[in-house]
Simulated scan of single mutants.
Amino acid sequence: MNLQVAKWGNSLALRIPADYVRRVGIKDGDHVEASLTIDGGIYIRAARWDRKAFAHDLEKLRAAIPMGESVMEELRQGARY
């Protein structure tokens, strides 16, 4: 299949036909990996999910959340037994 290269800001872009998108299972906002082949071609495929990178990002987000008092402790203080 021949695809047309188009200008997108300061970069170049390719439009992926809808049939290919459905077959590969990618959607808007997904990441893809691109690499060069030995014969000078471009190989593009859906990026794999990286568990270590996800865990690292999750840890950074968790560290950014301020920790306060336990909600359960606040409820217990007002409870009648």
Rank of each mutant, 00 (worst) to 15 (best):
Q4C: 05
Q4W: 05
Q4V: 12
Q4S: 05
V5G: 01
V5F: 12
A6D: 01
A6I: 07
W8S: 15
G9F: 13
G9D: 06
N10M: 12
S11L: 12
S11K: 10
L12H: 08
L12E: 11
L12Y: 12
A13W: 14
L14Y: 02
L14K: 02
L14H: 02
R15S: 00
R15F: 03
R15Q: 04
I16M: 05
P17F: 08
D19K: 04
D19R: 02
D19H: 02
D19T: 03
Y20D: 14
Y20I: 11
Y20S: 15
V21E: 01
V21Q: 01
R22L: 05
R23D: 07
R23G: 10
V24R: 00
G25H: 15
I26Y: 01
I26L: 05
D28I: 13
D28Q: 13
D30L: 01
H31I: 15
V32A: 06
E33L: 10
E33Y: 12
E33N: 15
A34Q: 11
S35W: 06
L36W: 11
T37A: 14
T37K: 14
T37E: 12
I38A: 15
G41R: 08
G41Q: 06
I44P: 04
I44V: 15
R45F: 07
R45L: 05
R45T: 09
R45A: 11
A46D: 00
A47G: 12
R48S: 12
R48C: 08
D50C: 12
R51N: 04
R51Y: 03
R51G: 01
K52W: 10
K52I: 09
K52N: 10
A53M: 14
F54G: 12
A55S: 11
A55M: 08
A55C: 06
H56T: 13
H56E: 13
D57Y: 07
D57N: 08
L58C: 05
E59R: 01
K60I: 08
L61T: 01
L61H: 01
R62L: 03
R62S: 03
R62V: 02
A63L: 11
A63M: 14
A63R: 14
A63D: 08
A63V: 14
A64Y: 05
A64R: 08
I65V: 13
I65P: 02
I65K: 14
G68N: 04
G68E: 02
E69Q: 07
E69A: 04
E69P: 00
S70H: 11
S70N: 12
S70Q: 11
S70M: 10
V71T: 03
V71A: 04
M72S: 00
M72R: 04
E73Y: 04
E74L: 14
L75T: 09
L75N: 07
Q77S: 07
G78D: 13
G78L: 15
G78I: 15
G78P: 03
G78K: 15
A79Q: 04
